[in-house]
Amino acid sequence: MTTPLITARDLTIRRGDHVILDHVNVEIRAGEIVTVVGPNGSGKSTFLRALIGAIRPSSGSIERAPGLRIGYVPQKLAIDHSLPLTVRRFLELPHRIGRTRANQVLAQAGAEALADRQMVDLSGGQFQRVLLARALLEQPRLLLLDEATQGLDQPGAAAFYRRIEEVRREIGCAIVMVSHDLHVVMAASDRVICLNGHICCEGTPAIVADAPEYRALFGTGTKGALALYRHEHTHDHDHDHGPEHGSDPHHHHSPDPASEDAQI
């Protein structure tokens, strides 16, 4: 085994009396895709922000491989309308980069046509691709995505994840992503971590989907969607996913694309 890129050891984060993360141990190794799932308020975003160093652990530690380059795609980025900013200029913060390099990462992220557009004029999907391009600038060995497909409709989200897989093939970085889109996301993952303040369970998508801890959190509503994964990849047809499908209150299967886009 190679040495891990980043290791969270007994990571505990408290805010006031509230324990957000409780003794979380995670290792991320080169090139793997890890998905963190969990209900709202389970500490997923906090976990990612601790990994980039935005939140200091209350106890425990984050250890990074020496010289580790991290690319980060934040959950949301509200750009005030009073700030004029082209996509190209956004990529040049905080360091100037050449025109070639900018075009290169924009192409990798599927956003080559957007270079001279204003950030505030982009649609939700375009905005996410530009954020991805930005995260790729430093040739990261670890890419962290926080709810990167929030506000995208299902085809949009699926396209975005295909893009992520291509990026990994191209530059070979490890990817950690936090998501609600369990059905799409888990299909692409090597490993799933189910988080609810602590790690409930972890393993391959199939193992996690069958774990009682996971079922307790997400019910059986998403099982149908997971079966989708199985149809495609493991041909496991054992699970009946008809009646319960979509009954999970935590999880919205088919958001109205128009209204979701309007929020961006």
Binding site: G53, I70, Y72, L77, F90
Partner: peptide, 8 residues
């Protein structure tokens, strides 16, 4: 723009 992007 975003404090977390800055930290990253």
């Amino acid at each position: 723009l975003n404090p977390d992007l800055a930290r990253a």
